[in-house]
């Protein structure tokens, strides 16, 4: 029986391994492979091996650097805000109060709406003529009347970040809430007996106990943010300095699919996005001392 166990485990894991190979690893390796070629989906262009040519071209492409910068700003600011706000909301809904269940459910609505739809909704709310958000900001004297928020370099990216924070904070809050519920009540009782006040209890018990949960949530969100596409594409199509790496990649892989040999170039950009995401993931895992066992 004992002897057989690894064998049984292998056969039970096999379908999952095969499935993941087909739907995840194969496209990944194909993209890596393609990034060393110059080719197009249009057979008019010959497929040629160019080595690191695509990468060299990419590092000399100012549009790549601009979209990288935008992506990083978007990621750092939106994930930081989502984490802080998510933590605060989680702490509130962790308390006992009337209609807590209803509040917890209602909180998730922004997360439940498909991004393409909510982005379109926000695009209208930021419209200079009839947008309710434009009115609100005018009323608060944050902007001049008639300012097209999504047409102003500088403002547009912040509007997009705002939409992302609105949409994803509930997800953060939900994950952190789950973490909060795992902290044993005895820890707090012991701390109270030792005379620790609320602030001390938060920093000495709640936060350290939450670190693994927050780390997982951070990884999820950061990886999502680094490849952000829909919210940007729907709201500004990448104009006025809001072009992210994925939005630029759409131009390479779709607009140019038949018209130039840029499919390998787009694959190289995909690989860069993959590498970038990996770096972030490794940094998180190392710095937060996560253990995956």
């Amino acid at each position: 029986m004992q002897k057989n166990e690894p064998k049984v485990a292998f056969w039970m894991l096999l379908p999952a391994i095969l499935l993941i190979s087909v739907i995840a690893f194969f496209p990944l390796f194909k993209t890596f492979y393609d990034s060393f070629f110059s080719f197009s989906l249009n057979p008019r262009f010959p497929r040629e091996f160019v080595g690191f040519g695509n990468y060299i071209k990419l590092f000399n492409d100012s549009r790549f650097w601009a979209s990288l910068k935008t992506t990083l700003i978007f990621t750092v600011v939106s994930v930081a805000l989502e984490t802080v706000l998510g933590l605060m909301i989680a702490l509130v809904v962790h308390q006992e109060f009337k209609f807590r269940g209803a509040v917890r459910a209602a909180m998730l609505i922004p997360w439940a709406i498909p991004t393409a739809i909510s982005s379109q909704m926000w695009r209208w709310m930021f419209n200079d003529q009839f947008g309710i958000m434009s009115r609100l900001y005018e009323y608060l004297h944050i902007i001049e009347p008639g300012t097209p928020i999504l047409g102003r370099p500088g403002l547009a990216l912040w509007a997009i970040i705002q939409v992302d924070v609105w949409k994803t904070t509930p997800f953060m809050a939900l994950l952190i809430l789950a973490g909060l519920q795992l902290i044993p009540e005895q820890l707090y009782e012991a701390a109270k007996i030792d005379g620790a006040n609320m602030i001390q209890r938060f920093f000495k018990i709640t936060l350290p106990q939450l670190i693994p949960t927050i780390a997982i949530a951070l990884i999820f969100r950061t990886l999502d943010a680094l490849r952000v596409f829909d919210v940007v594409y729907v709201m500004t199509r990448g104009s006025v300095g809001t072009e992210t790496l994925s939005v630029y990649n759409r131009v390479l892989l779709m607009d140019r699919a038949f018209t130039s040999a840029s499919f390998g170039y787009g694959s190289a950009l995909s690989v860069i996005i993959f590498v970038l995401i990996s770096i972030f993931a490794i940094v998180y895992i190392k710095s937060l001392k996560l253990k995956f066992d």
């Binding site: 419209n127 003529q129 008639g146 300012t147 097209p148 999504l150 047409g151 500004t236």
Partner: peptide
């Protein structure tokens, strides 16, 4: 023209 034309497509202009 409002500054917002830099965000308008056909339907945005038509609605106004």
């Amino acid at each position: 023209s409002p500054e917002g034309v830099t965000t308008y497509m056909e339907e945005d202009a038509r609605r106004i």
